[in-house]
Design a protein around this nucleic acid. Structure first.
Lengths: 104, 104
DNA sequence: CAGATATGCAGGTAAATACCTGCATGTCAA
DNA sequence: TTGACATGCAGGTATTTACCTGCATATCTG
């Protein structure tokens, strides 16, 4: 997994909205997704391309349409390899501050 | 929590590195963090400012030094409100594809 | 086939971003 | 107090990014 691509992809509100839309109804076409976006179709295409690059979205062509499917795996991996690392520490800001100010 | 600030902050590899460094040893000074970064001190200051804006890092001054502490709460909230939403769906790409191609 | 529909592709631009240099300020320690 | 040290602040620049418009291609439908 390319961690950087995933985080960069999630760093834009439009792309998070796209994932939300796909979460509500998976397998939507580009046109359907655009109806909820308030920007040119071509812009949405670029965002979807970035999500696809990050492997957060997969696509299949059906005739002249392109169907978009959300892929939750990278999100789970981000959580497993990244978020939990910090949670595991059970870092208490106040506790650390106290120790630090007391000269450890 | 400002979700956008958190995701934007996490979208840069230098800032993720800073969080990693603080995870290894909490409460480091700006100078200490810079030793591991290979960029000008002033650039690191900007990155740390963005992390602080996103509430991912808190700081305390001790004399002429500034101590940096990681705050795991926004990461946990990102997970709770965002990542789990997609996991909960138990989205199976192949399953969805099959349904879609069969005309639902 | 012809027209409508869905998407792809090629630039172009304004704003945001990630760096930098130079200098100022504040704190410690002899 | 004075010099060393840690950080703050003010720009400047090159790259990236998020939009756009215009046109091309492919597919369905009558």
């Amino acid at each position: 997994m390319d961690t950087d691509k995933v985080f960069k992809a999630l760093g834009d509100p439009t792309r998070r909205r796209l994932l939300d839309l796909l979460c509500d109804k998976n397998g939507q076409t580009l046109g359907q997704l655009c109806e909820n976006l308030d920007m040119a179709r071509q812009s949405a295409t670029q965002h979807l391309g970035i999500l696809e690059e990050a492997n957060l979205v997969s696509t299949v062509r059906r005739g002249r349409e392109k169907l978009h499917f959300i892929n939750p795996v990278p999100l789970h991996e981000v959580y497993e390899r990244w978020v939990r690392k910090f949670e595991r520490q059970r870092l208490s800001l106040l506790h650390d501050l106290k120790k630090e100010l007391e000269g450890e």
